[in-house]
Design a protein around this nucleic acid. Structure first.
Lengths: 182, 182
DNA sequence: CGTTTACGTCAGCCATATTGACATATTAGG
DNA sequence: CCTAATATGTCAATATGGCTGACGTAAACG
């Protein structure tokens, strides 16, 4: 699954058959809830982005460049796991519109290190604020300890082999980011 | 954001600046963890689907028709929030390949009620099993009570206005599904 | 009998991703 | 110093999965 809605859903679906929901059955409820939760989670940002003609691809770049200012194009490709051709268009648009700048690496001038402009930082901040707001609201509803529990749960959902890389990525940005997010 | 990887990420990103991570700051860790968790969650299914030339669009249809056998095309459009033109292609492929059948409604013969064939049910079951396996593993890692906590958290992440519709959708399928999932 | 509903389909457009080939600049190594 | 490898960019073609608008057909409804 990927992106569904439901909302009013005037649907009056039929209702046959029996059983399931037993001990070891499929966790349909969690599957669908994660699906809908993620849809709404990215929906916040999608709306804002659509207003300026950007899509999720632009969001991804803004997010990671914001978290890792000065990252190389190759780093971004590695994280996003897309081809440079795909990144090319998105990056060009972000540069043309003044959200991202590329500077030659000081040591290796072949590199085009990526930075957000203040305009880019503002947009990244707005996008992160939308998604943070949703998390904060949800965690408040879940009571104390929910944040740690949610973090543990989300980590546990990630492929075991990928966890180390993800946690290092987060830790690195958190560490480096002591001045950022201003 | 939508789909990132990371994995080995030989990246050796730079680390400038200061501050953040304070009390009320952006929850970058949760934002990225949800992103990666969802990526892996759908990645399971994506792999299986790619092997038979299907994509996420097919998965969505299989999933909801499996959960609500006999649903109308209009119901599916409402849930998926896509246009009938978009659904058309996917549905045609699923029917052509023998995963879905359409039967005229008994009362209203204009309706093309949607059902999975046994082949379609087998695929839907395999897909759900993959995603269930991930949830079960993750919840086991989180200890007792994690399932209820995860459910609460995921519901809390959904738009408040959409929650009722989603919960009704899940309840309806669970109720109707007492014989299904065979 | 005429309107509305449920569904399908043709035609074209857009965003995002892919592969493969090739260009350019720069660094690194023998 | 010259060659090879690296970092990045770009051209071209293709696929997927969305979209809008227009139109058609069968069946139900009033």
């Amino acid at each position: 699954m990927a992106d569904v809605n439901v909302s009013t859903a005037s649907t009056r679906l039929p209702g046959p058959e029996s059983d399931r929901s037993g001990a070891g059955g499929p966790v349909f409820d969690l599957i669908e809830l994660l699906f809908f939760a993620y849809r709404d989670f990215i929906g916040d940002a999608d709306e804002l982005l659509a207003g300026i003609g950007f899509g999720r691809a632009h969001h991804r770049v803004l997010h990671f460049v914001n978290r890792h200012p000065g990252m190389r194009v190759a780093d971004l490709l590695e994280i996003l796991k897309i081809t440079k051709q795909s990144l090319g268009r998105v990056l060009r648009e972000l540069v043309e519109d003044g959200y991202v700048v590329q500077k030659a690496g000081p040591a290796d001038r072949r590199q085009r290190l990526l930075y957000l402009t203040s305009k880019g930082e503002a947009l990244a901040r707005d996008l992160a604020a939308l998604q943070t707001r949703r998390f904060v609201r949800a965690l408040a509803e879940c009571g104390p300890g929910a944040r740690a529990a949610a973090r543990r749960f989300l980590v546990a959902m990630i492929d075991p082999q990928a966890r180390e890389g993800v946690e290092r990525l987060i830790a690195r940005a958190d560490h480096a980011g002591r001045n950022r997010t201003r």
